[in-house]
Amino acid sequence: MKKVQAWLINFLAQVSIASSLLFIPLFAKELGASDIEIGLITSFYSLAILTSSGIFGRLSDIYSKKLFLTLGLLLSSFSFFAQCFARDPVQLLVIRTLVGFSIGIFPAALTAYAYKQNRKIGHFTSFGSLGWAIGQLFAGIIAVYCGIFIFGALLFLLSFFMVIREEIPDERIPRSRSTFKIIRENLSVYFAFFIRHTGASAVWLIFPLYLFQLGISKFWIGAIYFANSFLQFLLMPRMDRFNPYLLLNLGAAFSGLTFIFYSLATEIYQFLAIQILIAFGWSAMYVGALRIALEKNIEKSSVVGFLNSTIYLSTIIGSIIGGFIAENFGYSFCFLFGALLSFLVPFFRVRNGAIKSF
Results as ranks from 00 to 15, higher is better:
S126V: 01
S255W: 12
L290A: 03
S255E: 14
I276M: 12
S178Y: 10
V99M: 14
L130E: 03
G131T: 06
K66Y: 09
R87N: 10
F156W: 15
Y245K: 01
E166T: 01
I134L: 14
R165P: 00
I95H: 13
F56A: 04
T310N: 08
Y63Q: 10
S309W: 06
G323V: 05
D35L: 15
S79P: 01
F271D: 08
L155G: 03
N297D: 10
V203Y: 14
V189D: 12
L294V: 03
S217V: 10
I278N: 03
P25S: 02
A265R: 12
Q117F: 10
P244T: 02
I216E: 13
S314F: 08
Y113R: 07
Y331K: 08
N186K: 04
R241Q: 09
G135H: 10
N243T: 05
L67R: 15
T125K: 08
S314L: 03
G104D: 12
I95E: 13
L93W: 11
L98N: 08
M162G: 04
F242N: 01
F337E: 15
L69N: 08
I164Y: 07
I182N: 07
A265S: 15
R119K: 14
F261C: 12
Y269K: 05
A112H: 05
C146G: 06
I355E: 14
W204H: 04
R96Q: 11
S126R: 01
R351H: 08
I164T: 09
I150N: 07
